[in-house]
């Protein structure tokens, strides 16, 4: 099973926390709920959510200030959910770096659609991530990819040649470990960089990359096929000595 996206709900109203938590959990998300800015800070010290649903009127801190502070140190997508429905609040919220703004009262399905949309958008814009990893070294399953030199080393420290497309594809997987990526996402994420869309298909690229990694195409252990969905790099990835994924828990073939 793919790892569910983790959504953090920050709202002082327990009825809203219950409603949003229920809605998201029913739709396959992992949800954490806190009532104030202090709870938000505490959770962020021990966890890294995929998206934050943030109320503006919190008892201890202004949600707009929290939003600005979040944006200054993280790219985590933020959806503001607030009954402060003035146009100016909406504008300031977006200016403070929120990815979306939904006024209360809201239709639960609209919130769900926006959560999915914002996550989709965040993932279709990996440019920042890829720019940020320009000097990174990734280690996974004994392998090492050195991004600046584009050099892949096997567990026996042997240099492995990668084409431009294979390098781009592996870099996308290493940026999104243990996450199922559709063929469209893999194309989007790599598009304009190395992969020539009319020259090779993603399936062929994955097949070649598997061969480079010595991954058995009939029973791959690193890049697994997820039927009807795409591919997942099912392995722990460390980036620059810092954990960038979780232990091998990806889906099987």
């Amino acid at each position: 099973m793919p790892i569910p996206d983790h959504v953090l709900v920050v709202d002082d109203d327990p009825d809203i926390r219950t409603l949003v938590g229920r809605l998201l959990e029913k739709n396959g998300f992992r949800v954490s709920k806190v009532a104030d800015g202090k709870g938000l800070q505490q959770l962020l010290e021990k966890s890294q959510p995929d998206l934050i649903v943030l109320d503006l009127m919190l008892p201890d801190e202004d949600g707009l200030v929290l939003c600005r502070n979040l944006r200054s140190r993280s790219n985590v997508p933020v959806i503001i959910l607030s009954a402060r429905g003035e146009d100016m609040d909406r504008i300031i919220g977006l200016e403070m770096g929120a990815d979306d703004y939904l006024g209360k009262p809201f239709h639960p399905r609209e919130l769900l659609a926006r959560v999915k949309s914002v996550l989709r958008r965040a993932r279709s814009l990996p440019g920042d991530v890829q720019e940020q990893d320009a000097n990174a070294t990734y280690r996974f399953a004994g392998w090492m990819l050195d991004v600046p030199t584009r050099q892949l080393y096997s567990p026996k420290s042997k240099k492995i040649f990668l084409s431009g497309g294979e390098f781009a594809l592996l870099r996308v997987f290493l940026n999104h470990p243990n996450r199922v990526l559709s063929r469209d996402q893999l194309l989007d994420f790599s598009h304009g960089r190395e992969i020539e869309p009319f020259d090779r298909t993603i399936d062929m690229q994955v097949s070649r990359l598997r061969r480079r990694l010595g991954d058995d195409p009939k029973k791959p252990s690193l890049i697994k096929t997820v039927r009807s969905s795409g591919y997942v790099l099912a392995v722990r990835v460390d980036r620059g000595g810092e954990s960038h994924g979780s232990d091998d828990s990806g889906p099987g073939d």
Binding site: D13, D15, I16, L19, M57, K104, P105, F106, H107
Partner: peptide, 17 residues
């Protein structure tokens, strides 16, 4: 009042909002 306004319709109770 603010909380009732914000939550009622989300649960389906527009009148509470």
């Amino acid at each position: 009042g603010h909380r009732m306004k914000g939550s009622g319709a989300g649960y389906g109770f527009d009148g509470i909002s």
